Computed example of a mutant assay.
Amino acid sequence: MEEKWLTWAKQIQAIAQTGLAYGKDVYDIERYEALRELSVDILANYTFEGKEKIRLAFADDDGYCTPKTDIRGVIFQEGKILLVREKLDGKWALPGGWADIGLSPSEVAVKEIAEESGFQAEAVRLLAVLDKKFHQHPPEPYHVYKMFIECRIVGGSAAEGVETSEVAFFAENELPELSLERNTPQQLQTMFEFLRNSEKPVILD
C-alpha cells in the first residue's frame, strides 16, 4: 500500500485538476489553483524532486483527472521470461510503457516489445490488471493501472532499443535486479504462475 501522504497529494491534485476543468467562478478557480499548488508542496516536501519538475510532471495536466495506464508485454520461451534492461536505471523490466492514444492495449504491448526488444510479437491473452498502489512500487505522483498481456514471438531477433540496452530471457529463480518502478519480483512470480497454469484466471487489482 502506498504512503498516506502520497494518496492525499494525488487526491488533492485530482480535485484541483477537475475543478479547474469545470469551474466557472473566478474565486473557485483561485481556490483550485491553491489546492494544486498544495499538492505540489506535499510532493516536494517528501521527495527529492524540485517543485518545477513536479509541477510539470504532476500538476500540468488539464481536463478530468483519470489514472494513467502502463502496459507490459509478457513473453515466455523455454520456461524463461523476456526482460529488457532499461537505460534510465540500468535495471530490468518487462517490455512496455504508457498506453498510446489510438492504439488498443494489445497493439501497445506488441509495439513496445518490438521497440524495446527487437522481437515481433502477437498478443495472446490478458493476464492481469493491477492498481499500482496495491503493490511494492516506489512512490510516484500518478495513479497508475498496469496491464500485463501475454504475447508470443512471431519474428524478429533480440536487439536493444532507444530506451533499452540489453535483451535476455530469465528463469524464475534467476531474475536480475528489477526496475521496481516498472515491475516487482512478486509480479513476475505471478506471471510465472500463468506459465505453469494456463487456466489461471485474469487477476484484477
Rank of each mutant, 00 (worst) to 15 (best):
K4A: 12
Q136L: 14
E163I: 13
Q136N: 14
E115R: 07
V110P: 00
W98Q: 12
D100S: 15
E107K: 06
H137V: 03
L180G: 05
R125K: 13
L83S: 00
G156H: 00
K111W: 10
K91Y: 10
Q13I: 08
K24W: 09
I113D: 02
Y145P: 02
N197H: 05
S157A: 14
Q13E: 11
V162T: 13
A168Q: 09
N183V: 15
V110L: 05
Q11H: 15
W98H: 12
I42K: 02
K111L: 11
I54D: 02
Y27A: 09
F48A: 12
D60R: 15
A128F: 05
T47N: 03
I153L: 03
E112G: 01
A168M: 14
I149Q: 00
E116P: 01
K10S: 04
T184L: 03
L178D: 00
K200P: 02
E166D: 13
G19F: 02
A123L: 04
R72F: 08
L127A: 00
A121Q: 04
S179N: 09
K51H: 07
V84E: 03
W8P: 10
K80D: 08
Y145A: 05
E181Y: 11
E2S: 15
E174Q: 12
C151G: 01
E177Q: 12
A93Q: 04
L103T: 09
D205C: 12
T18E: 04
H137P: 00
V154C: 05
D60L: 11
K51D: 05
K132C: 08
L56A: 14
I101M: 09
G155M: 07
I81H: 04
L127E: 01
K132Y: 10
Q189T: 10
E107D: 06
I101L: 11
D41P: 04
E37W: 04
I113W: 00
E172D: 09
Y27H: 13
E160S: 15
E78W: 06
V129W: 10
G79R: 06
T18V: 06
A159F: 11
E37Y: 03
K10H: 11
A57L: 13
T184D: 04
G90K: 04
K111P: 02
F148K: 03
L35D: 00
A14R: 05
E107F: 03
W8E: 14
G90C: 07
F148M: 05
N197G: 06
E2M: 15
F148T: 04
A34W: 05
E112K: 01
S165V: 00
